[in-house]
Simulated assay, not measured.
Amino acid sequence: MTVPKTTVLVLDSAEPELLARFYAELLGATAGPAPGDGELLLVTGRGGLVLGVRRDPDHAPPSWPLPEGSQQAHLCILVDEKSLDEAEREAVTLGARPVAAEDDGSLQGSRTTLRRYADPAGHAFALTAIREDIVPGDTP
């Protein structure tokens, strides 16, 4: 059985409120803080979650398509906090490779509510614990 999950593309921004408002207006959606997470804003439309925006004070605009630019986006997979360990086992079983950021304490083995991985092709994503009432359980 698969743990219920939903995905949110998260954009980093030095001014997340402005970026979230931009996308909310552009998409006819609303923007507000993620419940239980002071660093993440969620842009929500009629169909549910559309986009996340996270504060990064050192954010540099993308140099795309130049390859030497920094990571500008990553996939954030929201999981019920009680199912985070099981979701991690699923991801690793499917071929995800755990990675650690030197500045988040995860190299010291802490089990945080944010766990970072590389997919089999090397793309970054994170499993993020969130309250059960936020994670839709009936979507395929």
Rank of each mutant, 00 (worst) to 15 (best):
A129S: 15
G137Q: 08
R55D: 07
G137P: 01
D104E: 07
S70P: 11
G36E: 03
E81K: 10
P16K: 01
E68S: 09
G45E: 02
D119H: 08
Q72Y: 06
L49N: 10
P136L: 08
G52D: 02
F22Y: 14
A101S: 06
L49I: 10
L26H: 07
D104H: 03
P4E: 02
A60R: 15
R116W: 15
R115K: 11
R115C: 01
P57F: 09
S106C: 04
A91T: 04
G122Y: 01
S83M: 14
L27N: 02
V10C: 11
P67Q: 09
D80S: 12
E17H: 13
Y117L: 04
L66M: 10
R97M: 09
Q108D: 09
Q71S: 10
V135F: 00
S83G: 06
G109H: 03
V10E: 06
E39T: 12
G105H: 02
G28S: 03
V99W: 00
D133C: 07
P65R: 05
S70M: 08
V50T: 13
I130T: 15
P140R: 07
D103R: 08
I77K: 05
R115G: 00
G47D: 14
T6S: 07
E81W: 01
A121V: 13
L19F: 00
D133K: 11
K5Y: 10
P65C: 06
T112H: 08
M1C: 06
A14S: 14
E90D: 14
A91L: 08
